[in-house]
Design a protein around this nucleic acid. Structure first.
Lengths: 116, 116
DNA sequence: TGGGACTATACGCCTTATGCACACAGTACG
DNA sequence: CGTACTGTGTGCATAAGGCGTATAGTCCCA
């Protein structure tokens, strides 16, 4: 864990890392469920390989953006490891979302997205 | 040059690459001017190091997203190398902008950006 | 109840990309 | 002149992902 408490030091996030944080914002999940959720949402554009996912999870744990959480009571599969966002993780996700929003806004101003 | 003509094969772009494409969408520029423009727009959040810029430019050239262009007639500094987007480059920029727009939309739906 | 398909996590190797330091030449300007 | 700034680029270390592979637990049904 190397939590700097200042979100902007961790930007920009990699696309994979941001997808994971978005997925965990929606709901606490285990690794494989994160993979399915990301691939479903980003249907098409670049899938999420298992190797990339688990290594990214390890990095996010190490930097304190996510933490492991006890499995839900109804869980039967003991292989699953569950994760949730930390407060820092949520703040970093917000900062990254704002950064991307700014880029998208610039792209729109330049006419790269719909004219309207 | 390794132009696959299918924009989606080149996604996702790195943050640096997308910033460069945005900058060149706005106006044809030489490397150093791109660096200044990017640092001004993205004031704060992660600057653009010279080393990263020039290597990213070399890759963008190699993959056919940008191309070198003759300097403007009024140019006096012969060190400057000018670039412009190719049609492929513009299409890739559009595809990446849409991908990011989708991520930002998801972030907004999850309440990571302003509630309103 | 045995066995194959799928779920789940993780590591190894290779390539790509960036941060950071540094080199080196041309330009601007007092 | 000479010194700060402009402009492009390389070397080295590290971070990160694609892809293949390993290993094991779970599910399901013939």
């Amino acid at each position: 864990m190397t939590a700097p408490s200042d979100p902007s030091e961790l930007l920009p996030l990699t696309p994979v890392a941001f997808e994971i944080l978005l997925s965990l914002t929606e709901e606490n999940r285990h690794g494989y469920a994160i993979m399915r959720a990301v691939e479903e949402r980003a249907a098409g554009r670049g899938r999420l390989h298992a190797g990339s996912l688990y290594r990214a999870l390890a990095r996010l744990l190490d930097s304190g953006l996510i933490e492991e959480r006890d499995p839900p009571l109804e869980e039967t599969d003991e292989r699953r490891r569950y994760y949730r966002l930390t407060r820092l993780g949520r703040r970093v996700a917000v900062a990254e979302a704002r950064r991307l929003e700014s880029q998208v806004g610039a792209a729109r101003d330049l006419g790269l997205l719909g004219e309207t």
